[in-house]
Amino acid sequence: MKNDDKKTKARRRFLAGGLGAAALGALAQGSTAGRRADRPVWQLDPYLCSQCGRCATECVLKPSAVKCVHAYAMCGYCELCFGYFLPGARSLDESAENQTCPTGAIRRRFIEEPYFEYVIDEPLCIGCAKCVTGCNTFGNGSLFLQVRHDRCLNCNECAIAAVCPADAFVRVSASRPYIFKGENDSTSGGLS
């Protein structure tokens, strides 16, 4: 046992260097952490999003924690909405084959002539961004994707961020966890 102790001491000295370096690094880190200790969460910047469909396929959750969000204030409330209707829809009625959304998660409600409201039924939304492309192409771009934090597990490395082709995923502060479109035309939401 004594023999072992001696060896241990020698090894301890040898390895103390490595461990010390790691501790030093973390200490330096800790001192900067004090400045801005807020917890980071994942969010995607809708202005960078390229609607590639990976939010629907890559999230560890099924369905994805990314959902479509509607900035109603940007919406034209049109009767003919290409976020809602497929391009080339046979007829403009609300049957499923005419809808852009593969899961029928957009609900269309008549408000008054000639306005219609479009609401995302979040439990049905899979975050595929198909409607987002439609809305961006033909409409005002009021539909966009966001990580919904009531679902997001906040993985240490977001599986979508790892493969997002537009690098639209960013870590944002948990106190400002959304980057919404159309908020006072100021664009950087949680980015700044």
Partner: peptide
């Protein structure tokens, strides 16, 4: 800048434009 939002529809039925919800992440 400052030109404001997109032109808002003139709702006559008293419809109020809603805002999207922002569910918060778990508290730290």
């Amino acid at each position: 800048a400052g030109a404001g939002r997109y032109p808002e529809p003139d709702f006559e039925s008293g419809y109020v434009i809603p805002t999207a919800t922002t569910p918060a992440p778990n508290a730290p």
